[in-house]
């Protein structure tokens, strides 16, 4: 047997420096991009070359240039500034939907993972049924039943993505529950609630932080998909999905109206994925791809 020996903790001199050196440049770049998005959401003015709402019909539908990096829309508004402006609402939708999705998934997953076998069986069947519906369709069903508002959009995305998370969380709990170290704690004579609190919870929940980060990127993609279909936040809001919806009629004449907001979404989702995967790899070695 080969022992895997890592660096002893004491030997980690000048930890920040060593940490920065150990992060690949691609990941650093991605982290920088995520930081810019956060800045756009918190203080959009810092990044905006123009007023995102002032119309100027003389400069409508201009292609991207140095003056207007993302071009202008049919009312002559600077698209880049509008994308920056939309960051706050888009990120809020993404974070809100992911948070809600996690709450649902945690309730189901923990009930199944820690509860009696009967509950686990029930939850598991329920999840199997939900898996027969694709994420987008679950979201659409919800929008159809409850009507079309920003809240429904958030809840719809949350419901669409929750089954996948629930299954992963259930798996986490079952795996930790069946581990030898939990058995070892039983053999020492600790009561079960203490074992749940000390071993099962912390270990099962450990991957969730990273999962959440990745989830926000995916949630924004799903939410923008709904908006793209005209079922989310509606124009003239600068929310990214709404920008996509507004640009749909211009695909053949002014491609940037569709491509640039999409790029903003893609860049965010990708950067979050790269950063998230890197953290995950650091925490637990090679990442296994999972279906959500």
């Amino acid at each position: 047997m080969t022992a895997i020996t890592l660096q002893p903790r004491a030997a980690r001199a000048s930890r920040t420096g060593a940490f920065l050196r150990s992060v690949p440049p691609g990941v650093k770049l991605a982290a920088l991009v995520v930081a810019l998005y956060v800045l756009a959401a918190v203080a959009p003015g810092v990044l905006q070359p123009h007023d995102p709402f002032s119309t100027d019909l003389d400069s409508s539908l201009l292609a991207p240039s140095l003056q207007h990096p993302f071009g202008t829309d049919q009312s002559g508004r600077d698209l880049f500034s509008r994308v920056v402006e939309g960051a706050r609402q888009s990120l809020a939708i993404g974070i809100g939907a992911t948070a809600l999705s996690f709450v649902i998934a945690l309730v189901l997953g923990i009930a199944a993972g820690l509860g009696p076998r009967l509950v686990d069986g029930g939850v598991n069947r329920f999840l199997e049924v939900l898996f027969a519906f694709p994420t987008l369709f679950l979201a659409l069903l919800f929008v159809a039943v409850f009507g079309q508002t920003v809240t429904t959009q958030i809840v719809a995305v949350a419901i669409g993505t929750a089954p996948g998370y629930a299954r992963i969380i259930r798996g986490q709990f079952l795996q930790v529950k069946g581990s030898t170290y939990v058995e070892a704690a039983r053999a020492v004579g600790h009561p079960y609630p203490r074992i749940v609190a000390q071993h099962i919870f912390p270990n099962a929940m450990r991957p969730l932080v990273v999962m959440f980060t990745l989830g926000v990127g995916q949630a924004i993609v799903w939410a923008s998909g709904l908006a793209f279909l005209g079922l989310g936040v509606a124009p003239p809001s600068p929310e990214w999905g709404a920008l996509l919806d507004a640009g749909r009629n211009y695909t053949t004449s002014a491609w940037w109206l569709e491509v640039m907001p999409g790029l903003a979404i893609v860049l965010f989702a990708l950067s979050v994925t790269v950063v998230g995967r890197h953290i995950q790899e650091r925490l637990e070695g090679k990442v296994k791809v999972q279906a959500l």
Partner: peptide, 22 residues
């Protein structure tokens, strides 16, 4: 593969449409 797995399909569609059709 990492990049493409994260791309929203409607955006890929738009890009392909703009590049290869329009």
């Amino acid at each position: 593969q990492i990049v493409t797995a994260a791309l929203p399909p409607y955006w890929i569609g738009t890009i392909l449409l703009v590049l290869l059709a329009v």
